[in-house]
Design a protein around this nucleic acid. Structure first.
Lengths: 174, 174
DNA sequence: CGCGGTTACGAGTCGCGTAAATATC
DNA sequence: GATATTTACGCGACTCGTAACCGCG
């Protein structure tokens, strides 16, 4: 039993047919046929009743579907929890700002951050001029910068709704 | 991320080293190395700190371990639920007994069964003599028989603790 | 014939095991 | 040198995609 088979099964149930699920999953139809058949063979029973217009769940399929979704959800949670930790640099997230932000919108954001990731520590570096902030950002001295977006910045940008965007730099873990 | 990788990871944490886990899992040591490395690469961080006497969890590993166990538990539950349904003949489990059992120990067992598998129906066939029960059992007329074990029965046998064993016949689903 | 699913088969990938190498005591 | 893990590499199995096939309106 593999995670991919469960994802295929859930997708087929969600979209109502092998073809529709194949389109969504960006795989060929026969792959779904094969994987679902392998899954059914391993479980010892059929999960889907193939019909002219899509598929219907068998009794076993009705039992299996929510469990399969639970497995996928658990896997996503496992992935996400580690990703959060990694993006938080194992408890230290270096944030670059300038004075006006640090004394303005940031404090509320820090509170929300700590609500979400209690195990992490935010380390603030604030600069007196946006030029210094930009230089530090380009040098990779932080994980996240809050301030006006430089003209030719091609990294990920998220707006905070304060008129100024957030520029995130995805620094790979060493 | 694959289920097998999670199983490997959990086993290594449980047994404290790659080698010990490899012995338990009946695979070669390098396979664990490869799979764990692939998992770490996908997650973007190391999970285990390799040391002289076994391994220790990193911060990410400590976060990941319980989630990995949850995924595996969910997968087991999914498997088991379908297996229960299949072994229960999609809601109908035919139980062969004799009079003395049906009026004695069985009622309490039925209650416990329905607690555990509310979606299933038990269909009882009770015979007046143990010889008739044995004949029906050998003919495959039921999924489960409760009564004295015939002399040369080679199927699975579970004792109920009432002095008489249960003889289960694993009839394959048609 | 159109639609949906299945079967057949070839190409690329992947996991596993054996054997050699590395690292740390 | 001993223990524990990693790297190298070949074999077998597996997955996927293309193409042909089947069953039904």
């Amino acid at each position: 039993m593999r995670l991919r088979q469960l994802e295929y099964f859930v997708a087929i149930c969600e979209y109502g047919s092998f073809s529709a699920a194949a389109d969504q999953l960006l795989v060929a139809q026969p792959s779904l046929s094969q994987q679902i058949r392998a899954l059914e063979r391993e479980l010892g029973t059929e999960l889907l009743e193939r019909g002219r217009l899509g598929v219907a769940l068998t009794a076993a399929g009705r039992v299996f579907l929510p469990r399969a979704q639970a497995v996928i959800a658990a896997a996503d949670e496992a992935r996400r929890s580690v990703a959060d930790l990694v993006s938080g640099r194992e408890g230290e997230l270096h944030v670059l700002t300038i004075r006006s932000v640090a004394s303005g919108a940031l404090p509320a954001g820090i509170v929300r951050w700590h609500d979400q990731y209690p195990g992490t520590v935010l380390r603030l570096h604030d600069y007196s001029h946006r030029r210094d902030l930009e230089a530090a950002m380009r040098a990779g001295r932080g994980d996240l910068a809050i301030g006006p977006r430089p003209g030719d910045w091609d990294g990920e940008v998220v707006s905070l709704g304060f008129g100024w965007p957030v520029v995130t730099t995805c620094r790979p873990t060493p």
